[in-house]
Simulated scan of single mutants.
Amino acid sequence: MDQLFEWIQSIYPEGTIKRREDKTHIQVTQKKWLSKKNKGFNIMTSQTHPEEFMTMIQGMLGFLSQIEGRNASLQEKVLIKCSTLNMVVGIETEEDISEEFFGELLRLADALDAVIFWGGGSLLNAQGQLLLDVNGESEVEDYTVTAHTSFLDGDSPESESGIQRKARSEQLLTEQGIPYNTNLPARAGDEHTTIRSKEEVARRAVALCLAALKGECLGAGESAEDTAALVQEVIDKYEAESFFSPVEKRFIDQHGAEQQEIISFSWGYEAYHVMLWALGYVKGLGTPTELCNVGKDVGYLQQKDSFTDFLSDASLRSKSEILDEADLIYRYNWVCVDSRVNDKTPPAGLNGGVVYERHRALNWLICYLDQDWDDVRTDT
């Protein structure tokens, strides 16, 4: 809210600007010879008006989702963007919005990373282009969704351990010659983080391995029947029927799978590798440039006679060790996402797929946003 006030001051350097004590209203008065014009900015945020704000956002999402958009992918991104909004600024003006005032609003929207709701239910981007109207039309083909870090990281207070961890990660990236984003915040420190229990991690490891096993077998051309029989045999051996997430359970239970599912679940070996590391079976994760050794990793589980054996031989790493890797992968993933957005090859041989799977696994380990496996985000 203070940033908003500063931006309005920069847009109207000659105006008289007053702000209400609670910061929820700003008035700009511009004097021109024999007249003066007043413009008002009413501010509602998710913190100043939580119930009203949530009602407004839900109504907005309901309205936009009912539109039959011509570009489904664009509409989905617009909906995601609106779900991340943390402030609504209502405009008050004594006359129709002139071209000059519209230009001022665009400057403000650009600074705020905002979208603009225009008359008649149209939604514009910060450049004034039509994102979506009531007829489903748009003037752009694509839209990059970004959100304020307060939405991604919540209100976890900064801590010395988090700040120091960020510094160590950035030092390592510097040594590796990898450019990084200094504006990425420090993540929650040791005192503000809960780590999954050893049994939770072991169960998740088994589930990931078995889902990846099905994907691997089907991808290699094995029949759906033989694959199902093998997977069920392993499930029975480790009494793993209850270990799967809802999405994994559907994949395991269905006959065969679509190619995209096969690929997606086969990547699960990389997340399984992280779980093995967290359980002490794998010595170090290393730089995410190469795929894990699937045969070796699967062997850690194959060599156990039961889940009890697998669990009892595991030793969960310390919270500090896990948070070190979680912070580092967070910064690696920003590099990979930035490279993809700018159509570049990730530097230093980073493998975007490996980075993504590790990021997801580590976010689950540190209970990021308290999300279950199927919902874990990899925000950067």
Rank of each mutant, 00 (worst) to 15 (best):
residue 3 Q to T: 13
residue 5 F to N: 11
residue 6 E to M: 10
residue 14 E to L: 14
residue 15 G to K: 06
residue 32 K to R: 15
residue 51 E to C: 01
residue 51 E to Y: 06
residue 56 M to Y: 14
residue 58 Q to R: 08
residue 60 M to L: 15
residue 60 M to V: 03
residue 68 E to F: 01
residue 69 G to S: 13
residue 70 R to H: 08
residue 77 K to W: 11
residue 77 K to E: 15
residue 79 L to E: 06
residue 81 K to P: 02
residue 86 N to K: 14
residue 91 I to V: 12
residue 97 I to W: 00
residue 98 S to I: 06
residue 100 E to P: 00
residue 102 F to E: 05
residue 106 L to G: 04
residue 106 L to N: 05
residue 114 A to F: 03
residue 115 V to F: 01
residue 116 I to T: 03
residue 116 I to E: 01
residue 117 F to G: 00
residue 122 S to M: 04
residue 126 A to H: 07
residue 140 V to Q: 03
residue 142 D to T: 14
residue 144 T to N: 06
residue 147 A to Y: 08
residue 150 S to V: 13
residue 156 S to N: 15
residue 158 E to P: 03
residue 159 S to G: 14
residue 159 S to R: 10
residue 163 I to A: 12
residue 168 R to F: 07
residue 171 Q to T: 13
residue 176 Q to F: 14
residue 178 I to M: 08
residue 181 N to I: 03
residue 181 N to S: 14
residue 181 N to Y: 09
residue 184 L to P: 05
residue 190 D to K: 07
residue 199 E to P: 02
residue 200 E to I: 09
residue 202 A to P: 13
residue 203 R to E: 08
residue 218 L to R: 00
residue 223 S to C: 03
residue 227 T to L: 04
residue 232 Q to P: 01
residue 235 I to S: 00
residue 235 I to H: 01
residue 236 D to W: 01
residue 240 A to Y: 00
residue 244 F to W: 05
residue 244 F to I: 02
residue 247 V to S: 02
residue 260 Q to S: 13
residue 269 Y to S: 08
residue 269 Y to Q: 01
residue 271 A to F: 06
residue 279 L to Y: 09
residue 280 G to K: 10
residue 291 L to R: 10
residue 293 N to H: 07
residue 301 L to Y: 06
residue 301 L to H: 09
residue 307 F to S: 05
residue 308 T to M: 05
residue 310 F to T: 09
residue 313 D to L: 11
residue 321 E to V: 13
residue 322 I to L: 15
residue 329 I to R: 11
residue 334 W to L: 08
residue 336 C to S: 06
residue 337 V to D: 07
residue 343 D to G: 03
residue 343 D to Q: 11
residue 350 L to A: 11
residue 351 N to A: 10
residue 355 V to G: 08
residue 358 R to I: 04
residue 364 W to Q: 01
